[in-house]
Every structure is written in C-alpha cells, then in structure tokens.
Amino acid sequence: MEEEVITACGSDMMSDVLAYVKDQSLLLTGLVNPQIVRTAEMMDMHCIVLVRGKTPDDTILKLAEQKDITVLSSPYRMFTACGLLYSNGLRGGCDVS
C-alpha cells in the first residue's frame, strides 16, 4: 500500500457508506462480503479494515486484488479501531448535518 490515508469512515451498512461518504479513503467495517470491496471501489476508497478480527475469504481477496484495494484485519471492535486511528491523526471528513 503506497497511498496515504488521511480520512476514514466506519460502517456496517454499505447503504450509508454510499450515501454519506465524501472522499474518505479508508473503510472500517464488520461486514464481510464482496460488496464491501465493490462499495470501496465505487467510492474510490483504497483500503478496507475488517474489525472484530474478521478475516476476508478468497472471493473478497481476489476481488480486492483485482481492484487494487488493500484489505486489513484488526482484532479491535469498531469503536476502538476507529478511536485508535482517530487518536493517530485520521479524521472523519463527514459532514455534520
């Protein structure tokens, strides 16, 4: 992964990611199916972090490789994973409205 990630977004609902994400480049999610990769692709996001220690299956990994999207796995729950990234400088970039 050579892209620099500045903003992130956490959600288990791809509907919400598609509706509310602006230009965040990292997606944190507890959802594990190929649509997380498709959603990231459509939103031009470069990296997906699976929370709660979830691991991607082969279908997801293959698709992600094809779309040049990095998939990582974190043992932390959503709140903690987001908090860790936030306290290390990542921001939400979401509109408050």
Partner: peptide
Amino acid sequence: VRSLGFGAGMGLPN
C-alpha cells in the same frame, strides 16, 4: 438484505 449491508432506503435518493 440488511445483514448484507443494504436496505437503509438510501439508494433511490442517492
């Protein structure tokens, strides 16, 4: 469908 991450009723407005 919701457990697949969809079904928030946001698609058509989007």
